[in-house]
Design a protein around this nucleic acid. Sequence first.
RNA 1: GCACUCGUAGCUCAAUUGGAUAGAGCAUUGGUCUACGAAACCAAAGGUUACAGGUUCGACUCCUGUCGGGUGUACCA
Length: 584
Amino acid sequence: MQALIEELESRVSEVMSELAGERVSAMVKLSQNIKFGDYQVNGVMSLAKKLGMNPRQLADKIVVKCDLSDMCEPAEIAGPGFINLRLRSDWLTKQLQKAIYDTERLGVDIVPVSGRTVVDFSGPNLAKEMHVGHLRSTIIGDVLSRVLEFLCGDSDKVVRQNHVGDWGLQFGMLVAYIRETEPDSFADPSVLRVWDLEQFYKNAKKRFDENEEFKQFCYKCTVMLHEKDAATMAVWRAVLGESRRHCKVIYDRLMVNLNESNEKGESTYCDDLPDVIADLAKAGMITESDGAQCVFMPGYNTAEGEPLPLIVQKSDGAFLYATTDLAAVRYRVSKLGASRVIYVTDSRQKLHFQMVFDCASKAGWTGQARLEHVPFGSVLGEDNKPFKTRSGESVKLSALLDEAESRALAVVSQKNPELDAKTKQEIARVVGIGAVKYADLSNNLISDYVFSWDKMLAMEGNTAPYMQYAYARVQSIFRKALTEGKTITAGAAISLQEPAELALAKILVRYAETLSAVSRELRPHILTGYLFELAGEFSTFYNACPVLKAQEPVCSSRLALCRLTADTLKHGLSMLGIETIEQM
RNA sequence: GCACUCGUAGCUCAAUUGGAUAGAGCAUUGGUCUACGAAACCAAAGGUUACAGGUUCGACUCCUGUCGGGUGUACCA
């Protein structure tokens, strides 16, 4: 079966479409108030209007014609023409049963997709260390990739693309700096080791700013790099290797699924750029303006009210990121076979991508593919300005994650002093990293958010630790069950008597539609919201319904509910790239 | 100036993209541990959804205008 809400939607829509004589949507939504059932049909009123009918009478016809008796109690017509649906308890238990057996997918059906989905995210500048500015793109893109991949059940259909900065002046500068300060490494790039990449970059930059001769040398090295001078390329590759080493540490700590096979940096496209210009010119889209090669499209204006161009080649002949992005679109559509390309970058680049998409489409490079920009807001400090260190520098991700772990360690040590040091360390790692990621993901994408240690590690409210705690408590029940000789049988009959049991069951069966909503709307906070609700509903259940002390068959039934709750929490968190621990 | 974006409880944010009585978490106030883990639960209180119009059966959501914040706006990415 497809996701619950989608099943209801398609069944009711079909009946409504028959009555309407055209394709209409039932607009099935989750009810906000249990008084109105579990799901409600909202589309009746507008259809009645269109058909010139009384909405309640139309609702009546729909209800008579639409057989939902396997899933729902008899439908009720309420208010001006809502149809309220309540799930049958025996249907619920059947779904839960199925999900428990299905340890791989928890009853979530595969949704096949045509073509590939390309997700462009993270994209750090490899000349420097990753800083807090890379955090959001990296983890949001990772979550979207995970969800899309899981839903279509085919890892070949989701292609992660790490569009790293690995080309241009900054690398000419690093190569120049190595030639000057480390002749040994220049002679044999394999011995190059950069322990502190950030400091290394800073030193080079300082020299660049202060010494005119060195600056010219940097320009020269950049040209040599672009001309593929062998020795220069060798050092450049060595620098990238060192830089990747730094990146990998961060990706590993963040549990982000990115590796070298996903890396398609700017340099990948450098040979295609002249073709991009040539093809645009052939299509008659290029206009020269102030010596630069430009694409002018309607609807874009400068501050002075003049037409705003997408510049694809500078007056000095150099290419820009717009050119590279256009080349990447071509590659992704024609070579990777993308039917959907998702760009996860901050909202300040919105105009840029609008213009690039517009241009690529006019040039005929997009084919059937849908290009989507997922813009997100900035990470701010407590002063509501971009998050920086006290000295005004960007915060390195390695330092940020260190602090997350040490703060979490302090909390763990306070809450559970009896745990041994190693266990505390591990809990602190999982909780600390989880807290950082969750705080980011649970915010609506588009708004800026203030980075606050106190809030994300408060371990209260809508935070990762709250869910990790819920998970740990379920696991604790299973540990205890084991010592009492109770076995957990997947096939145990589930009966839903208490309100808390029913409420828990109803949220558990919504997991599939939640993931589906995330993949459609590309908003991870839909999933965090769901998990928070699930953990909350479990906590209520945990308090209201004793599990191990209950008589059979209630005990087994509740154990089964616990099993599925734990699996769903763990799975949902894994979609967010957040780990769980058995105890905390 | 123009474009984009946001404005919701004291604070931080939701509201399934036009549905019924706008929901959570912090903070505040009260109640639950001799209990399967209190990093928890239960309850109370908190609102003219920035403002003014409009569209319709129905508006936080769409349209127009006003006010306020953020971002972008020709050779950086």
